[in-house]
Design a protein around this nucleic acid. Structure first.
Length: 695
DNA sequence: CCACTGTTT
């Protein structure tokens, strides 16, 4: 295969100004800035040397004058670590007020908090703290700067609807538009009307700053506002330039093109590791295999090349490998999914190869199915990926698509927000609990399609969470809004006392909340996993299999990582399930719902599952395929299900979810009796227009 | 009959 022809725009070309990024955000502990510093300099004086410090007064002025400041600056300029400190120093955290800073991810909340605590000279959890699910390292009286996940702050609005403890709320990484970030934006905008002293800081990427500005300056209620409430503030940061090259003619096979690009770089460019972005596990395995095969043909004297896969499905030990230094004269090639775009940062990357695509999940309200498809990624995404090449030195980004893909609009400027492509039943329920009765009129930054809202309302009505006027039912609806699981599972939990099986349902709810419980592997390792899982397999299906695995982990495995490894179970996932189960148990206790065991009576358990899962019912045909009860849609059992190789004794099943990839796959199945559907949800099937006719 | 992008309460 001939070397790929890349076109490299000049310094003024596209990407050359956007695609810049510095090392660890606001880092004072590493990076080039630190090298020249006198070791005796205090952390405080180091802080004043950060480029962002020049903007300190301007920022404080804007926060004083405007309700909402949209801060634009590249990752790495120190927004997350410095801005909250500037605000504290300017007395925004006096009189027991707290400065909050939200993050879309747990690790970010904890690591940024730890760094800022060090800079402030505080013990983590004292003046500077964090709060994420299962871990609250903050003091209600002493903490002045608090980092938390956006989901956590949203939860706080349920207890304190005006978030009165906070004087300033900074929404970091707002451009990612996570569901809870979007919900918070809507709530904060509303809050400011009742709390004009509240200040909002939105941290965003350049590309969508104007959208935030327009949103916060617009007035849905037509109030007369004499002056703009929001303003954009641009910050500069310490960055290394990343040169961007485009492939002139797109390859029909980007995996192959990626392999070729990797070898072109390896043969022509100086040392430095390569990060390749592909869309999924299968592509990554194929790419790594091909790199390994072709590396055998390298000249004897050439440096070695080491392909390393990275995706969320890998066990933690395997993920760690990408951080280990490769041997002498060996170039690491990390072949990754989007996990390396924002969640995982690998130092030492100098070259990025970007396939220009991404796998994205989109909910189809018409079919009620999630679709997982490969599509062109956004320009924002491509820029973020390129930036990964410039963390420690100037880098190069090789894009496996032509520049016209950007200019022609083939690639959207930004990724659609999570809220407009998700099943929003849970969010509608939670908004109603916050007093937003008319969700259609909620001031969404981007409104979910009305079809999704209608679908969500119908579904919540069928679960008896809302009444026919759309209000939350009491106590079922209000309780469902509080429990941290999806509405289906919340209904099952809250109905469990009627079937005297709360103990088991708590476990099943916890286990369906975590992913990748059973470790999957390639080839022989995969076969071992299959054999191990048979030990837990229940004839009744996946929910009881999950229950068995959990009980074995607690009883025989004594929650040990070694036991998990030998049974091909994901230790971290199971440990998380233990925490979730405990938390859910506390909710049931607070709601005064008795928790009993069904003492091995699986029938009661399965009947209880039907009280929430009834809309997800399917029937097996003689040819082994399934049809959904609701729309008679063709469904296939996912190969990860224990029912993939089995026939359900009754031919009837309920399932946790359906996801469309190559086919429509149903996952997490349980065998049921046909009668239980009408028995447990007659309202639903008559409500749906009597489509369901028992045979 | 053969498969899971990534987050989070």
């Amino acid at each position: 295969m001939p070397p790929l022809q890349f076109w490299k725009p000049g310094t003024a070309g596209p990407g050359s100004t956007l695609d810049r990024e510095a090392e660890t955000e606001g880092s004072l502990l590493s990076g080039p800035l630190n090298n020249n510093l006198n070791a005796s300099l205090s952390l405080a004086s180091q802080r004043t040397r950060l480029p962002i410090y020049k903007h300190r007064e301007k920022l404080l002025y804007c926060v004083e004058k405007y309700g909402c400041v949209i801060v634009v600056g590249q990752t790495g300029c120190g927004k997350s670590t410095q801005l909250p400190q500037y605000l504290k120093e300017a007395n925004w955290a006096s009189e027991n007020h707290v400065i909050a800073c939200t993050q879309p991810r747990r690790v970010a909340a904890t690591t940024v908090a730890a760094r800022v605590a060090e800079e402030v000279g505080s013990v983590l959890g004292d003046e500077v703290g964090y709060s994420i699910r299962f871990e609250d390292l903050s003091s209600p009286t002493r903490t002045r700067i608090k980092y938390l996940t956006d989901g956590m702050l949203f939860r706080e609005t349920m207890v304190d609807p005006l978030l009165s403890r906070y004087s300033v709320i900074m929404i970091d990484e707002a451009h990612e538009r996570s569901a809870y970030t979007d919900l918070l934006l809507g709530l904060l905008k509303k809050m400011r009307r009742k709390r004009p002293e509240l200040r909002i800081i939105i941290s965003s990427a350049t590309i969508d700053a104007e959208d935030f500005l327009e949103y916060f300056n617009s007035n849905a209620d037509g109030d007369d506002r004499s002056q703009d409430d929001a303003i954009i503030l641009s910050l500069e940061g310490r960055t290394f330039p990343v040169q961007t090259a485009y492939l002139e003619t797109p390859s029909p096979n980007y995996v192959e093109a990626a392999v070729q690009a990797v070898f072109d770089i390896h043969m022509k460019e100086p040392k430095g590791d390569i990060l390749v972005f592909l869309t999924g596990r299968e592509e990554i395995e194929e790419c790594c295999q091909e790199i390994a095969d072709r590396s055998l043909t390298l000249p004897k004297m050439a440096p070695r090349i080491l392909p390393l896969p990275l995706h969320a499905g890998l066990p933690t030990e395997d993920q760690q490998v990408v951080f280990e230094p490769a041997g002498r004269d060996t170039r690491k090639v990390i072949v990754a999914t989007n996990i390396a775009e924002a969640s995982v940062t690998i130092e030492g990357i100098v070259y990025v190869v970007d396939c220009g695509h991404v796998k994205i999940k989109t909910y189809n309200p018409r079919t009620g199915m999630d679709v997982l498809t490969v599509t062109p990624c956004s320009v924002a995404s491509a820029n973020q990926r390129s930036g990964r090449a410039g963390r420690t030195q100037p880098g190069k980004s090789y894009r496996l698509f032509p520049q016209s893909a950007i200019t022609s609009g083939l690639m959207p400027p930004t990724t659609p927000p999570e809220l407009v492509r998700s099943d929003i039943s849970l969010f509608v329920l939670q908004l109603k609990a916050l007093g937003v009765d008319n969700v259609l009129r909620f001031d969404w930054m981007d409104s979910p399609p009305s079809e999704m809202m209608i679908r969500a309302m119908e579904f919540l009505y069928s679960l008896k969470a809302i009444d026919d006027s759309g209000r939350l039912t009491k106590p079922l609806g209000t309780s469902m809004a509080e429990v941290p699981v999806d509405p289906m599972m919340a209904a099952i939990l809250l109905n469990s006392h009627n079937f005297k099986c709360g103990e088991e349902i708590l476990t099943i709810a916890a286990m369906t909340s975590v992913q990748n419980v059973f470790v999957f592997g390639e080839g022989a390792a995969g076969a071992m996993g299959e054999i191990e899982r048979r030990k837990f397999t229940a004839e009744e299906g996946d929910h009881l299999t999950l229950l068995n695995a959990y009980n074995a982990f607690v009883r025989y495995g004594r929650q040990s990582p070694k036991w998990c490894a030998s049974h091909k179970l994901n230790y971290k996932a199971l440990l998380r399930a233990v925490s979730i189960r405990k938390q859910l148990g506390k909710y049931l206790e607070r709601f005064n719902i008795p928790v009993e065991s069904c003492e091995g009576d699986a029938k009661r358990l399965r009947k209880c599952l039907v009280t929430g899962y009834f809309k997800n019912a399917a029937r097996m045909l003689p040819d082994g395929t399934y049809r959904s009860v609701r729309e008679n849609a063709l469904l296939h059992v996912h190969p990860s299900s224990v029912l993939f190789t089995r026939t359900p004794s009754t031919n009837w099943v309920i399932y946790h979810e359906v996801i469309e990839t190559t086919k429509s796959f149903i996952r997490d199945l349980t065998v049921i009796e046909q009668d239980w559907l009408v028995e447990s949800a007659p309202h639903y099937y008559t409500f749906r227009g009597g489509k369901f006719k028992p045979e």
